[in-house]
Design a protein around this nucleic acid. Sequence first.
DNA 1: CTAGGGGTAAAT
DNA 2: ATTTACCCCTAG
Length: 299
Amino acid sequence: MGAPKQKWTSEEESALKAGVVKHGAGKWRTILKDPEFSSVLYLRSNVDLKDKWRNMSVMANGWGSREKARLALKRQHASRDDNGLTAGDQSDEDSGDARPLPSSSGSPQIGSSKRSMIRLDNLIMEAINTLKEPGGSNKTTIGNFIEEQYWAPPNFKRLLSMKLKFLTQIGKLVKTKRKYRIASANAVADNKKVPTMLRLEGKQKGSSSTPRVDKEEIIVPTKSQIDLELQKMRSMTPQEAAAAAAQAVAEAEAAMAEAEEAAREAEAAEADAEAAQAFAEAAMKTLKGRTTQRLVKQH
DNA sequence: CTAGGGGTAAAT
DNA sequence: ATTTACCCCTAG
């Protein structure tokens, strides 16, 4: 009658994820009753939460419980092409926990998949949303939040800084003093383009007259560095290598997300994204090749 | 109440 | 035509 379909807002998704982090997946009723989340999820039922979680997990994880059924259904209607399993489709399966984390899945298709990788952005939003600090949250707080709830790569901070800056540039976040807060409720979708100065600073390639080279602007390794990193990975423990690979994937995602929106005129963005992609790809390959072990992390 | 199979229909 | 929110049912 009134609302045939209410799309889940990112606030609701964030609340749901935060709720799962706090109470565990499956405790829908508990999450719903938690005053921390009920303010956002009061429209949803426990079943809604479950279904939504199912959808989210399914999308983030690749193929879960429900896809098979759907795929089986689709093959009937859409095409008469019954193909077996694609060669090389060795997607690893999760052991027990199927949370849609930004880095978890070991999709071997880094190079071919294009879109749908703006999760880190959402993670930042989630952090700010959940923290609910008046006036916004600063970088450290946001970083800590994310590190606590999710994986924590060594130089994740650089990534975060980059992301924060980027999100501020495109108007998704508003920086005041040293704190970030989310730009007006849902006016986020309106930001189409970054008009004027996007990169008036830094990014001068061939400038040999630059007196000081100051800090390393770039997070993404160059091609020569890729080999170095890969060599390092070979001597790592499986856990370390997995973390490194996960980080590489995350960085590639971030770089590509930026490239998608900002690379219109920024020459360097594409190259960065490509390098990151190459590294991530190689990292995953190396990781899979050298070890059969995976880290079984159960909470 | 939850997990999960199976489905419908609204949005895209 | 696919995605997505929501529904219904059944076994634990």
